[in-house]
Design a binder for these strands. Structure first.
Lengths: 346, 346
DNA sequence: CTGAAAGCGCTTACAG
DNA sequence: CTGAAAGCGCTTACAG
């Protein structure tokens, strides 16, 4: 590997001057510059990013702390990553994913090394030890999601509005028995998963505001448990005609569960999966109507926020909320005739 | 941030000695060592990995070139990543994912910087420009998948055996009309996607060996196209009773397609999705029988191979093939009565 | 068992 | 517009 020194010698200049043209950081006489560029090409010079990082106190790498260990995956997160990576690249940063568990300790180890200039945190919890560590260690970061402290900069899904729009959609179609199926919060005392807490409370508020009766069923986030959830919904209210599901895996089971109970979707019951993607919805039969997480937008805004922070060009750290747009599939439709629904319960 | 120099001063030793205890790289007198450790704790010393990398010519980082830009995701790859990361950590390496397109040029840029000691490449194609670049640039690497040059070290799924076992499974259940649905190779001239090429040819060979008639249908890798594939299968052979699907997304559509054609799964037609995961299979109704990609094993072996290579402890670079174990779901069963099947075609 | 010193390949005031 | 030089925080022969 040729070094800057090799280039300097070949071009007959100092390494400082080479550095100036490599980084485009100072005015250099045109012919000097072209001699240097020629030398660089001849030697296939590539700057050593490690040395640059050490000298400049910046690595120009940002990391997404990637909770792969929780086995979250799917098209939604891929879109997020894709967009985040391309935005980072446009702004001159490398973007890496760091597969870590949601564990503050492991994270600290990684950050301490000075390998990255800043991090993007996702799956943020309402009380999140990682965020505390980040603040305390003075590491620049951007949050996809919010903690209880909403004064920190964040970019998040607007779960309240999303759920409100789901309710609007169903009530306008004539539904009045609308159930809510959500992934159970792992720790019922702490209620730490923001998206679950926020959607559930938006559902409750929205139903109260509409004078409708609430039916909330919690289940694990798997298709198998979704099937049980469908049975639970029918047990709680046999006249249910619409279900909002807050877990893309459970949604599949909810549809199956209704079918196995002898109901058809959407003729007897409509199912709407929220905070997911059309790609996931398409795996179901009937294809699910979905409210899609704005993954690309979150990726773009998150990376932009972090880089703004790093470069000190930020005026107001962002507090952005984006709702999930509704994309119709085959799993929702008008409320069935109420007499027929009543008959169901007998 | 405290540096090694700070620690050395506080402990009253040279920075060389501090380095020896930090890296456990040389014998140090017990009380000197404990003085140093105490100083490190008091100062919350964390080694600067960038400086270490520059001085030692090793970053102790390995990267997975992650084709996120192709929007591949899913539980399979998550398991791969999880296992790979933990194996790397056990052996003292950091493991990062580098979201890149399948593009040799972008890859070179990343490698040239000297940020990683070696890389793991996945979604390897039969003719893969990235592999050529890697060889040419002398970058240590491990392959998940194979190129045409099987003398390079690799870890891959044994597609031939997997398909052979799928055929065995079906013939033992009494099926004789077994179709194969595969994702189309994007470039039909080059036929560059190893898994698709290898499974297809194993299917052909296996059917010939059994004296059975081949039905091969290609489609895009989406549920929608899978539905069409089901129709195509029935058009090609109305007496089909079993289908092997080589694309986990299309498999959902194949099931739907049969159902929409008035056939039930598995009573009329069995569907087996290969090179996927049970988690994906569980999203379907009926739950798919699957042959599961050995993701964790691939992750473990791939990382181990790379680190062995980096540390020069390798005897024989690996050439490992692992078959996909069969996990029964609800979508396969014995061949239906042949008279009934015949009636179907009229 | 410990230390002085060179060196990794850059960046960046500073001087000219 | 260009260069000499210090410095980033480590590692690693080498000497003692």
């Amino acid at each position: 590997m040729a070094t800057m020194r090799d280039v300097a010698i070949r071009a007959g200049v100092s390494i400082a001057t080479v550095s100036f043209v490599v980084n485009n950081t100072k005015r250099v006489a045109p012919d000097t510059r072209s001699r240097i560029i020629e030398a660089m090409n001849e030697l296939h010079y590539q700057r050593n990013v490690v040395a640059r990082a050490l000298a400049s106190h910046r690595t120009r790498i940002i990391a997404l702390l990637y909770p792969a260990l929780d086995h979250r995956a799917g098209p939604t997160i891929m879109k997020f990553i894709t967009k985040a990576a391309s935005v980072a690249q446009e702004r001159g940063y490398d973007f890496v994913l760091w597969p870590v568990s949601n564990d503050a300790k492991q994270m600290s180890h990684l950050l301490a090394g000075g390998l990255v200039d800043g991090v993007i945190l996702m799956e943020v919890q309402i009380n999140d030890a990682r965020v505390d560590k980040l603040v305390e260690s003075n590491t620049p970061f951007a949050l996809i999601g919010r903690t209880h402290d909403e004064s920190l900069p964040f970019v998040d899904i607007d779960f309240s509005t999303t759920l409100e729009q789901a309710l609007d959609y169903f009530t306008e179609l004539g539904h009045s028995h609308i159930a809510f199926v959500s992934e159970r919060t792992p720790n019922s005392i702490l209620d730490d998963i923001g998206p679950l807490v926020r959607t559930a409370s938006a559902y409750r508020d929205g139903m109260v505001a509409r004078g409708l009766e609430q039916v909330v069923v919690y289940c694990e986030g798997s298709p198998h448990d979704g099937r049980q959830a469908a049975r639970d919904v029918l047990a709680a209210d046999p006249e249910t005609t619409a279900v909002i599901v807050m877990n893309e895996n459970a949604a599949f089971g909810v549809v199956s569960g209704f079918k196995h109970a002898g109901l058809s979707v959407p003729e007897d019951v409509s199912v709407l999966s929220i905070a997911t993607s059309s790609e996931m919805g398409a795996l179901s039969d009937p294809i699910l109507s979905t409210m899609n997480a704005p993954a690309a937008e979150l990726g773009e805004l998150g990376v932009a926020a972090l880089i703004d922070l790093l470069e000190g060009t930020v005026e107001h750290p962002p507090h952005v909320l984006l709702a999930c747009p509704l994309v119709l599939g085959e799993s929702t439709g008008p409320a069935p005739d109420s007499a027929a629904v009543k008959r169901r319960s007998t």
